[in-house]
Computed example of a mutant assay.
Amino acid sequence: MALLGTLVNGGCIVVGSLIGLFFAKIPEHFKETVMHGIGLAVILIGMQMALSTEAIIVVLLSLLSGAVIGEMLHLEEGLNRLGEWIGNKFASAKNDISVSQGFVTASLVFVIGAMSVVGALDGGLRGNHEVLITKGIIDGFVALVLTTTLGFGVLFSVIPVVLYQGTIALLATQIDHWIPEQVLNGLIVELTSIGGLIIVAIGLNLLNITSIRVGNLLPSILTVGLIYPIYLLVI
C-alpha cells in the first residue's frame, strides 16, 4: 500500500497535537525557551540538508525563480488566510497565538525536508515505509511541543502533509517510467538542499531574527524539477 507511511505520519501528528493541547497552560517563559530550542534545532537540520548540494547554481536558480513565482501568486498571504479561515471556524478555541501561525509554521516544518520526499518516493517505488514511519514519530513529538507554544492550529497541518506526501507516493508508483534513476537521484539531492535552506528560514523566523516570507519560496521545490534537467544538458 503506497500510502501506508503517509497515513502513519499523519496519525502521529494528530496524536502529538492532541497531547500537546493538554500542556497548553505551560508558563510563557517556558514556551519561549522551548520555541527557541526548536528554532535552533530546525536551523541545524536545515543546514545539514542545505550542504548536501552538488550543484549550487541549481539551488540558486530554483530559489530565485521560486521566489518570483511565490511573490506573484502571494502564496504566503494565501497560507495565512487559510489559517485564519480555520481559526474563524473554531473561534472559541483561539488563544494568544494565532491559529494561522501554528498552521503555517507546522505545515512548513513537517512538509519541507528530505524525509518527506525520500520517504514518499520509497513508499511508492518500493513499498518501503520505514522512512515515513520514522518521520512520523519525530513529527509527533515536534507537533506536541509546537502545539503547546503555537496552539491548536498545528493540528490542521496534517492536511497538507497527507496531501503532499500522498501525492508524491502515488506519482512515484509510475515515476520510473518518466525519469531515469540517475537523474532522479541527483534531483533528490538538490531538492534536499533547497528544502534545507527553506527550513533554515523557518528556524530564523521561529527565533524572531527574521520575518522571511517562507511560503513564497515554496515554488522553488517545483522549479528545481525543471532547472535540474536543463543543468544536466548544459554541463
Rank of each mutant, 00 (worst) to 15 (best):
V117I: 15
E76A: 13
A55L: 08
N88L: 06
G127Q: 10
S65P: 08
A120I: 03
T105V: 13
L73M: 13
F90I: 05
I97V: 11
F103Y: 12
A120F: 03
I86M: 02
L60Q: 05
G66E: 02
E54C: 10
F110G: 07
S62Y: 11
I97R: 14
A91P: 05
Q101K: 14
L63A: 07
L64S: 06
S65N: 02
G113C: 13
E77W: 02
M115Y: 09
V117N: 07
L60G: 00
S116H: 10
E84R: 12
T105L: 15
L63V: 09
L60Y: 05
V99H: 03
A91H: 10
M115G: 04
G119H: 10
S116E: 09
S98I: 00
G78Y: 09
A50V: 01
L108G: 11
V117R: 09
I97K: 15
L125R: 05
L63Q: 00
G102E: 00
S52A: 13
G87V: 02
A93Y: 12
G119M: 06
I69C: 06
S107Q: 04
V109M: 15
A50S: 11
G127A: 11
I57F: 13
G102D: 06
V99S: 10
A50G: 03
L82E: 03
G119P: 09
L63D: 03
I69T: 01
S52C: 11
